[in-house]
Simulated scan of single mutants.
Amino acid sequence: MLKYIVKRVLQAIPLMIAITAICFILIDLAPYDAVDSLVTDKMTKEQIEQRREEYGLNDPVYVQYFRWVKNVCKGDLGYSLINKTNIAKDMSVKIPNTINLVLPSYVTAFMLAILLGLLAGYKKDGWIDKIINGAASVGLAVPTFWVALLVIYKFGCDLKWFPIVGMHTIGDESFGDFIMHFIMPYSVLIIGFLPDLVRYVRSSTITQLSEDYVLVQKAFGSNKMEILFKHVSRNVLLPLITKLGMSLPMLVTGAVITETIFSWPGIGSYFVNAINKMDYPIVMDILLLSGTLVILGNLLSDILCALVDPRIRVEGE
Protein backbone atom coordinates (compact mmCIF):
# COMPACT_ATOMS: atom_id res chain seq x y z
CA MET A 1 0.00 0.00 0.00
CA LEU A 2 2.82 2.41 0.87
CA LYS A 3 4.53 1.69 -2.44
CA TYR A 4 1.28 2.39 -4.25
CA ILE A 5 0.80 5.71 -2.44
CA VAL A 6 4.35 6.84 -3.24
CA LYS A 7 3.82 5.88 -6.89
CA ARG A 8 0.60 7.90 -7.09
CA VAL A 9 2.22 10.95 -5.48
CA LEU A 10 5.09 10.82 -7.98
CA GLN A 11 2.59 10.58 -10.83
CA ALA A 12 0.78 13.64 -9.48
CA ILE A 13 3.83 15.92 -9.82
CA PRO A 14 3.87 16.18 -13.65
CA LEU A 15 0.08 16.43 -13.60
CA MET A 16 0.22 19.43 -11.27
CA ILE A 17 2.89 21.06 -13.44
CA ALA A 18 0.70 20.61 -16.51
CA ILE A 19 -2.40 22.01 -14.75
CA THR A 20 -0.63 25.10 -13.42
CA ALA A 21 1.15 25.76 -16.74
CA ILE A 22 -2.10 25.59 -18.73
CA CYS A 23 -3.91 27.86 -16.24
CA PHE A 24 -1.05 30.34 -16.25
CA ILE A 25 -1.02 30.49 -20.06
CA LEU A 26 -4.80 30.96 -20.22
CA ILE A 27 -4.62 33.82 -17.72
CA ASP A 28 -1.83 35.42 -19.77
CA LEU A 29 -3.98 35.17 -22.93
CA ALA A 30 -6.81 37.11 -21.29
CA PRO A 31 -7.35 40.56 -22.89
CA TYR A 32 -7.03 42.32 -19.52
CA ASP A 33 -4.70 42.08 -16.55
CA ALA A 34 -4.46 43.51 -13.04
CA VAL A 35 -2.91 46.78 -14.21
CA ASP A 36 -6.02 47.59 -16.26
CA SER A 37 -8.07 47.73 -13.06
CA LEU A 38 -5.58 50.21 -11.59
CA VAL A 39 -5.45 52.55 -14.59
CA THR A 40 -7.05 55.97 -14.18
CA ASP A 41 -7.75 58.69 -16.72
CA LYS A 42 -4.96 60.79 -15.25
CA MET A 43 -2.25 58.18 -15.75
CA THR A 44 0.08 58.54 -18.72
CA LYS A 45 1.24 55.66 -20.91
CA GLU A 46 4.66 55.87 -19.26
CA GLN A 47 3.11 55.48 -15.81
CA ILE A 48 1.06 52.50 -16.99
CA GLU A 49 4.13 50.82 -18.46
CA GLN A 50 6.01 51.53 -15.26
CA ARG A 51 3.30 49.68 -13.34
CA ARG A 52 3.54 46.73 -15.72
CA GLU A 53 7.29 46.65 -15.32
CA GLU A 54 6.96 46.88 -11.54
CA TYR A 55 4.67 43.84 -11.45
CA GLY A 56 6.81 41.91 -13.95
CA LEU A 57 3.94 41.69 -16.45
CA ASN A 58 6.21 42.69 -19.35
CA ASP A 59 8.35 39.58 -18.87
CA PRO A 60 7.69 36.56 -21.13
CA VAL A 61 5.01 34.24 -19.79
CA TYR A 62 7.47 31.41 -19.13
CA VAL A 63 9.64 33.75 -17.03
CA GLN A 64 6.60 34.81 -14.99
CA TYR A 65 5.54 31.16 -14.59
CA PHE A 66 8.90 29.87 -13.39
CA ARG A 67 9.23 32.83 -11.04
CA TRP A 68 5.85 31.98 -9.54
CA VAL A 69 6.70 28.25 -9.25
CA LYS A 70 10.01 29.08 -7.59
CA ASN A 71 8.27 31.25 -5.00
CA VAL A 72 5.58 28.63 -4.33
CA CYS A 73 8.23 25.95 -3.77
CA LYS A 74 9.74 28.24 -1.13
CA GLY A 75 6.34 28.61 0.53
CA ASP A 76 5.82 32.15 -0.73
CA LEU A 77 2.38 32.53 -2.30
CA GLY A 78 3.05 36.15 -3.11
CA TYR A 79 1.02 39.30 -2.60
CA SER A 80 -2.21 40.59 -4.07
CA LEU A 81 -1.50 43.00 -6.91
CA ILE A 82 -4.57 45.04 -6.02
CA ASN A 83 -4.75 45.04 -2.22
CA LYS A 84 -1.03 44.46 -1.51
CA THR A 85 -1.96 41.89 1.14
CA ASN A 86 -0.14 38.63 1.83
CA ILE A 87 -2.06 35.87 0.00
CA ALA A 88 -1.00 33.12 2.42
CA LYS A 89 -2.35 35.09 5.38
CA ASP A 90 -5.57 35.90 3.52
CA MET A 91 -6.12 32.24 2.65
CA SER A 92 -5.36 31.11 6.20
CA VAL A 93 -8.38 33.17 7.27
CA LYS A 94 -10.65 32.43 4.29
CA ILE A 95 -10.21 28.64 4.12
CA PRO A 96 -11.42 27.92 7.71
CA ASN A 97 -14.48 30.09 7.05
CA THR A 98 -15.28 28.03 3.95
CA ILE A 99 -14.71 24.70 5.72
CA ASN A 100 -16.98 25.81 8.59
CA LEU A 101 -19.74 26.30 6.03
CA VAL A 102 -19.17 23.51 3.50
CA LEU A 103 -18.19 20.59 5.75
CA PRO A 104 -21.38 20.53 7.92
CA SER A 105 -23.49 21.03 4.77
CA TYR A 106 -21.87 18.15 2.89
CA VAL A 107 -21.89 15.77 5.87
CA THR A 108 -25.59 16.49 6.44
CA ALA A 109 -26.38 15.95 2.75
CA PHE A 110 -24.28 12.77 2.75
CA MET A 111 -26.14 11.23 5.70
CA LEU A 112 -29.55 12.20 4.31
CA ALA A 113 -28.59 10.81 0.89
CA ILE A 114 -27.77 7.39 2.35
CA LEU A 115 -31.15 7.15 4.04
CA LEU A 116 -33.22 8.56 1.17
CA GLY A 117 -31.26 6.75 -1.54
CA LEU A 118 -31.58 3.36 0.16
CA LEU A 119 -35.29 3.92 0.65
CA ALA A 120 -35.86 5.04 -2.94
CA GLY A 121 -33.85 2.14 -4.36
CA TYR A 122 -35.63 -0.38 -2.16
CA LYS A 123 -39.05 1.01 -3.17
CA LYS A 124 -38.12 1.28 -6.86
CA ASP A 125 -41.02 2.58 -9.00
CA GLY A 126 -43.19 2.95 -5.91
CA TRP A 127 -44.71 6.23 -4.80
CA ILE A 128 -41.89 6.86 -2.30
CA ASP A 129 -39.30 6.36 -5.03
CA LYS A 130 -41.19 8.66 -7.39
CA ILE A 131 -41.31 11.43 -4.79
CA ILE A 132 -37.63 11.14 -3.79
CA ASN A 133 -36.32 10.64 -7.33
CA GLY A 134 -38.55 13.39 -8.69
CA ALA A 135 -37.39 15.84 -6.03
CA ALA A 136 -33.77 14.90 -6.76
CA SER A 137 -34.30 15.49 -10.49
CA VAL A 138 -35.81 18.91 -9.81
CA GLY A 139 -32.92 19.69 -7.46
CA LEU A 140 -30.39 18.84 -10.16
CA ALA A 141 -32.18 21.07 -12.67
CA VAL A 142 -32.56 24.12 -10.41
CA PRO A 143 -29.48 26.40 -10.26
CA THR A 144 -28.02 26.92 -6.80
CA PHE A 145 -27.93 30.70 -7.19
CA TRP A 146 -31.67 30.75 -7.89
CA VAL A 147 -32.40 28.74 -4.75
CA ALA A 148 -30.13 31.10 -2.79
CA LEU A 149 -31.98 34.16 -4.09
CA LEU A 150 -35.36 32.63 -3.22
CA VAL A 151 -34.17 31.81 0.29
CA ILE A 152 -32.80 35.33 0.76
CA TYR A 153 -36.02 36.91 -0.49
CA LYS A 154 -38.37 34.76 1.61
CA PHE A 155 -36.49 34.29 4.89
CA GLY A 156 -34.22 37.35 4.80
CA CYS A 157 -36.25 40.13 3.18
CA ASP A 158 -39.88 39.04 3.57
CA LEU A 159 -40.01 37.24 6.93
CA LYS A 160 -36.77 38.83 8.21
CA TRP A 161 -35.91 35.69 10.18
CA PHE A 162 -32.22 35.63 9.30
CA PRO A 163 -29.55 38.17 8.31
CA ILE A 164 -28.90 38.25 4.59
CA VAL A 165 -25.15 38.64 4.19
CA GLY A 166 -21.88 38.07 6.02
CA MET A 167 -20.76 35.65 8.72
CA HIS A 168 -21.21 38.00 11.69
CA THR A 169 -23.01 41.21 12.48
CA ILE A 170 -20.53 44.05 12.87
CA GLY A 171 -19.52 44.21 16.52
CA ASP A 172 -21.12 40.89 17.41
CA GLU A 173 -18.80 37.86 17.29
CA SER A 174 -21.03 35.57 19.36
CA PHE A 175 -21.79 31.97 18.39
CA GLY A 176 -25.50 32.71 18.29
CA ASP A 177 -24.98 35.46 15.74
CA PHE A 178 -22.81 33.11 13.67
CA ILE A 179 -25.58 30.48 13.64
CA MET A 180 -28.14 33.03 12.47
CA HIS A 181 -25.89 33.96 9.53
CA PHE A 182 -25.01 30.30 8.94
CA ILE A 183 -28.48 28.77 8.55
CA MET A 184 -29.43 30.13 5.11
CA PRO A 185 -26.21 29.34 3.19
CA TYR A 186 -26.02 25.98 5.03
CA SER A 187 -29.53 25.09 3.86
CA VAL A 188 -28.82 26.20 0.28
CA LEU A 189 -25.69 24.04 0.11
CA ILE A 190 -27.56 20.99 1.42
CA ILE A 191 -30.15 21.48 -1.32
CA GLY A 192 -27.29 21.78 -3.83
CA PHE A 193 -25.35 18.70 -2.66
CA LEU A 194 -28.24 16.35 -1.88
CA PRO A 195 -29.84 15.51 -5.30
CA ASP A 196 -26.69 14.10 -6.91
CA LEU A 197 -25.84 12.03 -3.84
CA VAL A 198 -29.39 10.67 -3.53
CA ARG A 199 -29.47 9.52 -7.15
CA TYR A 200 -26.02 7.98 -6.75
CA VAL A 201 -27.11 5.95 -3.69
CA ARG A 202 -30.42 5.00 -5.31
CA SER A 203 -28.67 3.68 -8.43
CA SER A 204 -26.17 1.67 -6.36
CA THR A 205 -28.98 0.28 -4.18
CA ILE A 206 -30.97 -0.93 -7.20
CA THR A 207 -27.85 -2.61 -8.60
CA GLN A 208 -27.06 -4.33 -5.29
CA LEU A 209 -30.63 -5.59 -4.81
CA SER A 210 -30.29 -7.55 -8.06
CA GLU A 211 -27.17 -9.38 -6.87
CA ASP A 212 -27.18 -13.08 -5.96
CA TYR A 213 -26.24 -12.54 -2.32
CA VAL A 214 -29.61 -10.84 -1.75
CA LEU A 215 -31.41 -13.98 -2.94
CA VAL A 216 -29.17 -16.07 -0.68
CA GLN A 217 -30.05 -13.92 2.33
CA LYS A 218 -33.75 -14.21 1.53
CA ALA A 219 -33.35 -17.99 1.30
CA PHE A 220 -31.79 -18.01 4.75
CA GLY A 221 -34.83 -16.18 6.10
CA SER A 222 -33.38 -12.68 6.59
CA ASN A 223 -36.04 -9.97 6.73
CA LYS A 224 -36.13 -7.11 4.25
CA MET A 225 -34.82 -4.42 6.58
CA GLU A 226 -31.94 -6.60 7.71
CA ILE A 227 -30.94 -7.27 4.10
CA LEU A 228 -31.21 -3.59 3.21
CA PHE A 229 -29.34 -2.05 6.12
CA LYS A 230 -26.93 -4.84 7.05
CA HIS A 231 -25.89 -6.22 3.66
CA VAL A 232 -26.96 -3.93 0.82
CA SER A 233 -25.96 -0.70 2.56
CA ARG A 234 -22.45 -2.04 3.17
CA ASN A 235 -21.91 -2.64 -0.54
CA VAL A 236 -23.55 0.65 -1.48
CA LEU A 237 -21.11 2.51 0.76
CA LEU A 238 -18.07 1.35 -1.22
CA PRO A 239 -18.71 3.47 -4.35
CA LEU A 240 -20.06 6.21 -2.08
CA ILE A 241 -16.75 6.29 -0.20
CA THR A 242 -15.03 6.87 -3.55
CA LYS A 243 -17.31 9.84 -4.12
CA LEU A 244 -16.62 11.07 -0.59
CA GLY A 245 -12.87 11.13 -1.21
CA MET A 246 -13.30 12.89 -4.55
CA SER A 247 -15.41 15.56 -2.85
CA LEU A 248 -12.36 16.81 -0.93
CA PRO A 249 -11.92 19.84 -3.26
CA MET A 250 -15.46 20.91 -2.33
CA LEU A 251 -14.21 21.82 1.13
CA VAL A 252 -12.43 24.76 -0.46
CA THR A 253 -14.10 25.47 -3.80
CA GLY A 254 -17.52 23.86 -3.38
CA ALA A 255 -19.40 27.00 -2.37
CA VAL A 256 -18.11 29.68 -4.73
CA ILE A 257 -21.56 30.81 -5.89
CA THR A 258 -23.22 30.48 -2.49
CA GLU A 259 -20.44 32.34 -0.70
CA THR A 260 -20.57 35.13 -3.27
CA ILE A 261 -24.35 35.57 -3.01
CA PHE A 262 -24.35 35.54 0.81
CA SER A 263 -21.09 37.55 1.03
CA TRP A 264 -19.64 34.78 3.19
CA PRO A 265 -15.97 35.67 3.81
CA GLY A 266 -14.59 32.40 2.47
CA ILE A 267 -12.30 31.27 -0.30
CA GLY A 268 -15.12 31.28 -2.87
CA SER A 269 -15.91 34.99 -2.67
CA TYR A 270 -12.16 35.68 -2.40
CA PHE A 271 -11.64 33.78 -5.67
CA VAL A 272 -14.47 35.57 -7.50
CA ASN A 273 -13.20 39.00 -6.43
CA ALA A 274 -9.70 38.09 -7.63
CA ILE A 275 -11.06 37.02 -11.03
CA ASN A 276 -13.07 40.23 -11.39
CA LYS A 277 -9.97 42.30 -10.66
CA MET A 278 -7.62 40.03 -12.68
CA ASP A 279 -5.49 39.61 -9.58
CA TYR A 280 -3.70 36.64 -11.10
CA PRO A 281 -1.42 35.67 -8.15
CA ILE A 282 -4.54 34.94 -6.08
CA VAL A 283 -6.22 33.12 -8.97
CA MET A 284 -3.16 30.93 -9.57
CA ASP A 285 -2.72 30.09 -5.89
CA ILE A 286 -6.36 29.01 -5.55
CA LEU A 287 -6.17 26.96 -8.77
CA LEU A 288 -3.04 25.29 -7.40
CA LEU A 289 -4.84 24.51 -4.15
CA SER A 290 -7.87 23.17 -5.98
CA GLY A 291 -5.78 20.97 -8.28
CA THR A 292 -3.83 19.60 -5.32
CA LEU A 293 -7.05 18.74 -3.50
CA VAL A 294 -8.42 16.94 -6.57
CA ILE A 295 -5.33 14.72 -6.73
CA LEU A 296 -5.37 14.14 -2.97
CA GLY A 297 -9.10 13.36 -3.15
CA ASN A 298 -8.54 10.65 -5.76
CA LEU A 299 -5.71 9.20 -3.70
CA LEU A 300 -7.86 9.29 -0.57
CA SER A 301 -10.68 7.50 -2.41
CA ASP A 302 -8.36 4.66 -3.42
CA ILE A 303 -7.01 4.31 0.12
CA LEU A 304 -10.50 4.30 1.67
CA CYS A 305 -11.70 1.69 -0.81
CA ALA A 306 -8.71 -0.51 0.00
CA LEU A 307 -9.43 -0.20 3.71
CA VAL A 308 -13.12 -1.04 3.30
CA ASP A 309 -12.81 -3.81 0.69
CA PRO A 310 -10.21 -6.54 1.48
CA ARG A 311 -10.28 -7.68 -2.14
CA ILE A 312 -8.74 -4.39 -3.26
CA ARG A 313 -5.98 -4.74 -0.63
CA VAL A 314 -5.16 -8.20 -1.88
CA GLU A 315 -4.97 -7.02 -5.50
CA GLY A 316 -2.77 -4.09 -4.46
CA GLU A 317 -0.40 -6.38 -2.58
Rank of each mutant, 00 (worst) to 15 (best):
residue 58 N to Y: 10
residue 232 V to H: 04
residue 180 M to G: 07
residue 163 P to H: 11
residue 1 M to I: 14
residue 157 C to H: 11
residue 198 V to H: 02
residue 302 D to Y: 06
residue 11 Q to I: 09
residue 22 I to L: 15
residue 274 A to G: 08
residue 265 P to I: 03
residue 28 D to I: 06
residue 73 C to P: 03
residue 174 S to G: 08
residue 190 I to W: 00
residue 235 N to T: 00
residue 306 A to G: 09
residue 184 M to T: 07
residue 316 G to S: 13
residue 246 M to E: 09
residue 229 F to N: 08
residue 289 L to M: 14
residue 134 G to A: 13
residue 145 F to S: 04
residue 259 E to R: 04
residue 278 M to W: 10
residue 77 L to M: 15
residue 38 L to H: 02
residue 119 L to M: 13
residue 139 G to R: 05
residue 20 T to W: 05
residue 271 F to W: 06
residue 256 V to K: 01
residue 49 E to A: 14
residue 201 V to R: 03
residue 234 R to D: 06
residue 21 A to P: 09
residue 106 Y to E: 00
residue 172 D to W: 01
residue 301 S to F: 05
residue 213 Y to P: 03
residue 201 V to P: 01
residue 150 L to Q: 07
residue 129 D to C: 07
residue 151 V to N: 05
residue 313 R to V: 01
residue 217 Q to K: 10
residue 298 N to I: 05
residue 42 K to W: 01
residue 111 M to I: 15
residue 296 L to I: 11
residue 228 L to V: 10
residue 316 G to H: 12
residue 75 G to R: 05
residue 235 N to W: 04
residue 292 T to W: 04
residue 62 Y to S: 11
residue 90 D to R: 05
residue 294 V to T: 09
residue 103 L to C: 07
residue 273 N to G: 04
residue 135 A to R: 06
residue 220 F to A: 11
residue 294 V to N: 10
residue 209 L to S: 05
residue 108 T to C: 14
residue 166 G to T: 04
residue 14 P to W: 08
residue 153 Y to D: 09
residue 39 V to N: 09
residue 81 L to N: 08
residue 30 A to V: 09
residue 59 D to L: 11
residue 302 D to I: 03
residue 18 A to V: 14
residue 105 S to M: 03
residue 184 M to A: 11
residue 33 D to N: 15
residue 278 M to F: 15
residue 271 F to T: 07
residue 96 P to M: 04
residue 270 Y to G: 03
residue 217 Q to S: 12
residue 181 H to A: 02
residue 178 F to P: 00
residue 210 S to E: 14
residue 84 K to D: 13
residue 285 D to T: 12
residue 274 A to L: 08
residue 111 M to S: 11
residue 40 T to W: 06
residue 306 A to F: 01
residue 286 I to W: 03
residue 243 K to T: 09
residue 116 L to D: 06
residue 288 L to K: 08
residue 187 S to P: 04
residue 21 A to C: 14
residue 311 R to V: 02
residue 186 Y to I: 04
residue 43 M to V: 10
residue 262 F to P: 00
residue 270 Y to T: 02
residue 184 M to S: 10
residue 147 V to I: 15
residue 310 P to M: 05
residue 108 T to W: 07
residue 223 N to M: 02
residue 109 A to K: 03
residue 20 T to F: 04
residue 282 I to W: 04
residue 200 Y to D: 06
residue 15 L to M: 15
residue 168 H to N: 11
residue 88 A to E: 10
residue 108 T to Q: 08
residue 155 F to K: 13
residue 263 S to V: 01
residue 175 F to A: 02
residue 125 D to L: 14
